[in-house]
Nucleic acid binder design. Structure first.
Length: 647
DNA sequence: ACACAACCGACAT
DNA sequence: CGGTTGTGT
């Protein structure tokens, strides 16, 4: 909903801009807005619960644009739990979506796929699991992100107020009511957008004199005409509302006036709705990424500090002792640590008892549990990987074969090591219950297991005796050794084209093919952060533990000589910029992230041979998505029984 | 002039 | 979810 008709009224102060305007600045991004758009690229897959990386690719593309082309610091913000005020609205929408999904599925099963697509488009739903997928990508890229305890709108405005960001990218006009100063809307693929500045309110026409209203009066206006928290008063739109506010100043007087001449009927709930709306707009719970605590968008005035009513409108939080979501008045009674985990995307925002799992990973796991037997000899998988191998061979210069062979030898060595590790871990696992140390081992087991599966497939590929493809020991990033000479050469894109040309002759695909590997890799890299236990008592990992997790994952691959979590992101971003944005040198711009940018530089400076490379793209291009689906399913087989313990 | 309901596009092929 | 269009008051 938002504020119907607000943006049109603001047309006079809508300024067409380019993102270049924000070079060097930080911008908050409404993650769900992007997710919602991106989801349309794979509506069918979402409705059918099939894996898809499409929606993530949208983020990869856009974030790449922001970072590498415009040198902007993105700050992804995701919605959290629904506010009480909006829960029934949410329910209605959900109902509608379910209806459309049913229809779509019926048509699909009847074989009418075309018409099914239509309904799938109408039931596009964005889930926290999808957000988690993006979050995992953000982690690899060292992109700031936060899951708001409640609405992203309030969270983003908080970030802007506190100076964490310089502006907000969103389509939602509500932001201006929350107090947003710089709103950037209608961003397109080329980096063009429309900017709306609060300061420009003074330039609005006399017809809509927003600048003559204070913040409270603006809230009155939107509540009268209707907003997310109020249905509004029928027959009152923004223009009528602003006139009333100008005339009567306060809500009380407006109500009296309306009642006096009796031409309009005020819904009985309106008064209460308005009260709740004022609280929600002003004091909604947000997460402070500096102090890592739950706080409020604006400081609650001392007169309202004890108001149960207020705190019931701004979002229920987890009570430290009772471990239940409820109206909490005193901030010291809030379980801030738990909310930190929600903010980091570790826990499901509306059910803090559940770990939040990357959608794609979750699908892998459920797919596994459904067909609990490994079927390594699956034909399609075979052909898929063999094909990949052939493709690679035909594509890469012969000079690189030897190095690839070396890489493969190392891979095998590591695989052996990991097998052993795995076994001891399994033993350990059997003996212990879920606690932190075990979680680490579990992760280790996971990756070892993955490697085992990969080993199998890789062997088959290599049996063609053209060992160009090397499977990175850390199963997640399958990599090919890209010839340094080739990368140094003036034209780098052709190399990619060659790779794909070998695949099926259709080399005329998008030039963004270099994005694909990173997107795919990123869908999977994050699996390194997959939760390994769902037990709430043994509360989820601390940040440190998460890091250990990913280190356990990759130390085998990288021999621990390098910060593992940076390897992918740096090199992938690096690769991407090498291919797509050669003229824009990789410039890490991460003042916000704790991670040392120096590391990224290091990686960039490293010999090209050491970088993970484009193997993914070949897989992607060479294979139908169904193949990759099956590949994933196979790979995680040994994992699910303890990773995804019950649901 | 204003409000509002109905429909469309989003994404990407 | 926003914007647009046509219709009704």
């Amino acid at each position: 909903m938002g504020i119907q008709g607000l943006l049109p009224q603001l047309k006079p102060i809508q300024q067409p801009v380019t993102l270049a305007r924000y070079e060097g600045q930080s911008l908050a991004i409404d993650g769900y807005a992007w997710l919602h758009r991106a989801a349309h690229a794979c509506a069918a897959e979402l409705a059918l619960n099939q894996p898809s990386a499409k929606y993530l690719e949208f983020f990869v593309k856009r974030l790449d644009m922001l970072k590498n082309r415009f040198h902007i610091n993105p700050y992804m913000v995701f919605d959290g739990d629904a506010l009480m005020v909006k829960k029934d609205t949410e329910l209605k929408r959900r109902q509608k979506r379910i209806e459309n999904r049913e229809k779509g599925l019926a048509l699909w099963n009847a074989g009418d796929k075309r018409q099914a697509y239509e309904y799938f488009q109408k039931c596009v739903d964005v889930t926290p699991e999808m957000a988690k997928c993006v979050i995992d990508y953000c982690k690899t890229q060292k992109i700031r992100y936060v899951v708001a305890p409640f609405e992203a709108d309030a969270q983003m405005v908080y970030l802007e107020k506190k100076g964490f960001v310089d502006g907000i990218i969103s389509e939602d006009s509500d932001l201006l009511i929350f107090g947003c100063c710089k709103l950037i809307t209608k961003l397109n693929d080329h980096g063009e957008a429309v900017e709306i500045c609060r300061d420009d309110f003074s330039h609005l026409p006399a017809k809509f004199p927003l600048h003559q209203l204070n913040d409270e009066q603006i809230r009155i206006m939107v509540c009268l005409s209707g907003c997310d928290y109020t249905a509004g008063i029928p027959k009152i739109g923004l223009l009528t509302a602003i006139k009333m506010v100008r005339k009567f100043k306060t809500m009380d007087k407006i109500i009296l006036s309306i009642q006096r001449d009796g031409k309009l009927t005020i819904p009985p709930e309106f008064g209460e709705e308005y009260q709740m709306a004022t609280f929600a707009f002003q004091y909604q719970r947000v997460f402070c990424p500096q102090d890592n605590v739950i706080t409020t968008l604006n400081t609650v005035p001392s007169g309202l500090m004890e108001s149960e009513e207020l705190f019931s409108c701004i979002g229920r939080v987890v009570h430290k002792l009772e471990q239940v979501k409820k109206v909490v008045v005193r901030t010291e009674h809030i379980d801030h640590e738990l909310h930190y985990k929600i903010a980091m995307g570790d826990l499901c925002p509306y059910d803090f008892c559940k770990m939040l799992v990357n959608r794609e990973r979750k699908l892998q796991l459920t797919a596994k549990s459904e067909s609990s037997i490994v079927s390594p000899g699956s034909k399609s998988i075979d052909s898929f990987f063999n094909k990949s191998a052939v493709v690679s061979v035909s594509a890469l210069p012969g000079t690189e074969i030897s190095s690839a062979k070396a890489a493969r030898r190392q891979t095998e060595r590591l695989l052996q090591e990991n097998k052993k590790k795995l076994q001891s871990i399994v033993e350990h696992r059997k003996l212990s219950r879920f606690d932190a140390p075990v979680a680490r081992n579990a992760a280790s087991k996971f990756f070892s297991a993955s490697r085992n599966n990969n080993q199998e497939v890789a062997d088959r590929s290599f049996s063609t005796d053209v060992s160009v493809v090397s499977r990175a020991p850390n199963s997640e990033a399958v990599s090919v050794v890209v010839p340094a000479s080739a990368l140094k050469d003036a034209d780098k894109l052709p190399i990619v084209e060659d790779l794909r040309g070998g695949s099926d002759g259709d080399a005329s695909q998008d030039e963004l093919s270099t994005d694909i590997p990173s997107s795919l890799a990123s869908t999977e890299i994050p699996s390194s952060m997959i939760p390994t236990q769902t037990d709430v008592d043994a509360t989820p990992f601390s940040e440190e533990e998460s890091e250990i997790l990913s280190e356990v994952d990759e130390s085998g691959a990288e021999k621990g000589r390098e910060n593992p979590s940076k390897r992918h992101c740096a090199s992938l971003a690096d690769l991407r910029s090498s291919f797509t944005y050669q003229k824009a040198p990789l410039r890490p711009r991460d003042p916000n992230v704790v991670a040392a940018p120096a590391k990224i530089k290091d990686t960039a400076a490293k010999p090209l041979q050491q970088r993970p490379s484009v193997q993914r793209s070949k897989h992607y291009v060479a294979s139908p998505s169904s193949a990759s689906v099956q590949r994933r399913a196979t790979r995680t087989l040994s994992l699910s029984d303890f990773v995804y313990r019950g649901d």
